[in-house]
Design a protein around this nucleic acid. Structure first.
Lengths: 340, 340
DNA sequence: CCTGGCTGCTGAACCGGATAAGTGGATAGA
DNA sequence: TCTATCCACTTATCCGGTTCAGCAGCCAGG
């Protein structure tokens, strides 16, 4: 089956390629009757615009890109990313935009992909996640002037629009809550230390603990995986000054931590209270259900996608501070048992 | 920053566009010294091939497509799809192929997307999921002769390569296992009735139940969502002849069913045994952990992607029967309590 | 010395649209 | 009646590559 082109339509309609192009694009320059005839023929012979040809003439690709830098097989069990992507897709599909995903191994490869996409005009813009404390992607993308929206926790990045939520306030809320329950020894299982939002959370955690006299405010860094979260939990629960409450930087680690607590014979929340960050179904399904810092991640992704489309459209777009996560108390937190 | 083209390279190198094209593509027709000079200049000025221009001359897009027909926001909590996609990505990213996802509302829209992608040469091939009993997508894709691999439970579909796994054997395995434990009244919470693999499972379920004298072999159809699974479970557990074991067609429904059992005061596995299909982390994290029909979904996706790349490459590719799911017994199944 | 073949390159057509510039005819205004 | 304007097109060019035909220049063989 040969793909019909506007030349085929032109021949059938007895007009020139140019006229067909005007007709199909709703441009002035053809009579209403000719336009109708052209449209009818186009439909009849099943014509579709050739994106490559359009792109060659400078048209957008109606695709946005997202590069994920993590082992591809991990993706399936990473609720945050999947919910984010589903929110992005919801926004995009409503506008017939497509999403191109590419998984890469390291930062150099990620920048290389941006460069290639830009050179190939394969995407109209990109969403960037997991901002590092000092992130070379920012300058690279600025150099390319590829429309970009940063998804992550920060106000402004040199000229780039970002969609972010306050990471400090939820930490404060959680620690104050635990403190009010009577906890005086709270530890945290943090994410990758060089991610910006991890740094923000760590600082907020240390500050609120200092203020409330909850010391030491120990944060154990992890790579966000369940395994690392389990390891950190095991270490915390084995220490001589065992914390009575643990904050986790994501839900996967919190769930893994809960399993460790059970495995070591500690009761939750009797012996130790647990708080998760990000509230996927996981948190609600385990026993006891986990108290969590909840936010609407699909909405978050949707906002980011919307902003990116606005940037692509050329509007002057302001960064958006999305609603911060807020504490949803469930069965994994309670007052600490009086120490023997 | 203006994107460099081969014309820029040609000018710098003092040769023609054609020579540059040959040099860059490793084609014969230029001397080794010229080739090296051209490559050096290309690298120096940061040249990238323009995919649109290449595509216009018939080059592949190095992208495969996948259309998902379900509410976008559901995706994030649908472990099967996310694991499948992560497996596909793992295979693709190793070959620098990209994956384009598009979420649509209905079948007509899905076929329309295929047609558009084909017309626009936007993808080199597609992966098709969730085959229906009588599926118009098959003929549509055959008409377009768009390279296609069907992911799902069936042997051969008119000329299309498929990657599938036996859906009947695991059902038999599960029912025989439950029967051996002493269960004589087993119900099933099934998926969408017009999906092919649902039909296969339903038939296998009814047949093995008949053979083992486990009657009635009731299957309640659902739309695969947790809510529907909960509803079906509530109905089963409220019926006068309450089943002592329930088989679920996915993990989300099984987990939801477990919550319903708890909510209604039934003990699992004391009062009712539960078996999930597809074994994501969900099943291992709930209490009790769910006995599940487990299979390596990322590997499944990887095989499908690999097959699709082979089809695109033009090889004669055979369909692949992947390993079937097999039963992993966990805490949610036990012998039924003797009836009062 | 002429012919034939090979090497290494050039020039131009081509892919399928978008679009600026040009054209012929009808119409309106002076 | 002559010009200006507009309409509805056509023609030609461009986008950035790929590819094919052609063409010098060189070398080998007869």
């Amino acid at each position: 089956m040969k793909r019909p082109t506007i030349a085929d339509i032109a021949q059938r309609a007895g007009v020139s390629k140019g006229a067909v192009s005007y007709a199909l694009n709703g441009q002035p320059g053809v009579s209403e009757s000719t336009r109708r005839r052209v449209l009818a023929i186009a439909k009849e012979i099943g014509w579709n615009p050739n994106g490559a040809a359009r792109a060659l003439s400078g048209a957008p690709s109606d695709t946005i890109g997202m590069v994920l830098r993590r082992p591809a097989r991990i993706l399936g069990v990473e609720p945050f990313f999947m919910e984010l992507i589903s929110g992005v897709e919801a926004e995009l599909s409503a506008r017939s935009y497509a999403l191109t995903l590419q998984v890469v191994a390291d930062q150099a490869a990620e920048i290389e992909v941006y460069r290639r996409w830009w050179g190939e005009r394969r995407v109209d813009g990109v969403l960037v996640c997991d901002l590092r404390v000092d992130d070379p992607r920012i300058t690279a993308l600025a150099d390319l002037s590829l429309p970009t929206v940063v998804v992550g926790s920060l106000g402004e990045v040199a000229g780039l629009v970002s969609v972010w939520s306050d990471d400090a306030a939820p930490v404060v809320e959680a620690v104050e809550y635990l403190n009010a329950l009577g906890h005086r020894h709270i530890a945290r299982v943090g994410g990758l230390p060089d991610l910006r939002h991890t740094a923000v959370r760590t600082e907020a955690f240390e500050e609120v603990c200092r203020r409330l006299n909850v010391e030491p405010a120990l944060t154990i860094p992890t790579d966000y995986t369940g395994e690392d979260g389990a390891r950190a939990t095991r270490r915390l629960l084995s220490s001589p000054r065992r914390p009575t409450a643990i904050l986790y930087d994501n839900d996967v680690m919190a769930v893994a931590g809960l399993a460790v607590a059970h495995e070591m014979g500690f009761s939750v929340p009797g012996d130790v209270s647990l708080v998760a960050w990000d509230d996927s179904v996981l948190c609600q399904l385990v026993h006891p259900p986990l108290t969590a810092m909840s936010r609407d991640i699909p909405a978050y992704g949707g906002h980011a996608a919307r902003r990116l489309l606005d940037v692509i459209a050329g509007g002057s777009v302001a960064s958006l501070q999305d609603v911060a996560a807020h504490l949803i108390p469930r069965g994994s937190t309670a007052a600490p048992a009086p120490r023997a």
